[in-house]
């Protein structure tokens, strides 16, 4: 039996197994820590920075934090929420997130966070350049104007022999996701669907079929992101 540890989030007493990931442990305790880059079972990137929390007073990303006994975590506090909102807004202006026409609308985690954080309009001007769309692969295409560089695809989508299908190219604000065209040639339908589902936004899209559910019955159409976690009743 693994050891249980106690920690607090915004004063609420929480429990987890020793060595648990903070985002995942919070979820089990009914606390939602927003994130865009974290993917359970995949090495954390700590790149979107939205899961910033304060641990014993210090800002840290929750996704890269392994819990230890007695950690005192601040999640729903004003300065952290403001920082998260700022990051969400920078992501909105960094590309072209035209929600109403996007195939991922309603299933998009960025859009859902925009709603959750009551973003009416980003405070920042739209001044980033247009990026190239890569539609060379037979089953998927990547619209880099909707990419937020969470690197979920880079970290989790590999070939059977472990080769990267996606990787980052360039650096800074010019960084973008590249597809290995040769490896993408052999992607199956299933893999293409998985790739689209892995992408939190509408950047990796399956060709020929934009969406499965009509607007109104998609994941975040009725309830805000995170609410499914917050409904969990813990003892």
């Amino acid at each position: 039996m693994s050891e249980k540890i106690k920690f607090t989030i915004d004063g609420k007493e929480c429990f987890a197994e020793k060595g648990a990931n903070l985002i995942e442990a919070a979820k089990e305790n009914g606390v939602y820590i927003p994130t865009l880059c974290h993917l359970e079972g995949v090495k954390p990137a700590g790149s979107c920075r939205i899961c910033n929390v304060k641990i014993n007073g210090r800002p840290m990303t929750a996704c890269t934090t392994t819990l230890i006994e007695g950690m005192n975590i601040e999640n729903n506090v004003e300065d952290i929420q403001e920082l998260r909102k700022i990051i969400i807004e920078t992501l909105f202006v960094s590309g072209n997130h035209y929600c109403p026409a996007c195939e991922k609308s309603g299933n998009c985690e960025l859009q859902a966070l925009g709603y959750r954080f009551k973003m009416l309009v980003p405070r920042f001007p739209f001044e980033f350049e247009e990026k190239e769309v890569d539609a060379e692969a037979p089953k998927i295409y990547i619209d880099r104007n909707r990419c937020i560089l969470c690197k979920r695809c880079v970290r989790s989508l590999k070939t059977e022999d472990g080769k990267s299908i996606f990787a980052v190219q360039g650096r800074g604000y010019k960084a973008m996701i590249n597809i290995d065209h040769e490896l993408a040639m052999n992607m199956t339908d299933e893999e293409a669907t998985h790739a689209m589902d892995t992408c939190p936004v509408g950047s990796i899209l399956k060709k020929e079929r934009g969406y499965y559910d009509p607007i109104g019955s998609r994941k975040y159409d009725k309830k805000p992101i995170g609410s499914e976690i917050e409904q969990i009743v813990t003892n």
Partner: peptide, 21 residues
Amino acid sequence: FIDESCGSCAPCRYLTVILRN
């Protein structure tokens, strides 16, 4: 700083540009 940002963290990637502009 804009030229040298690795681009990994969203705020460093974009907020630097926004501030410079």
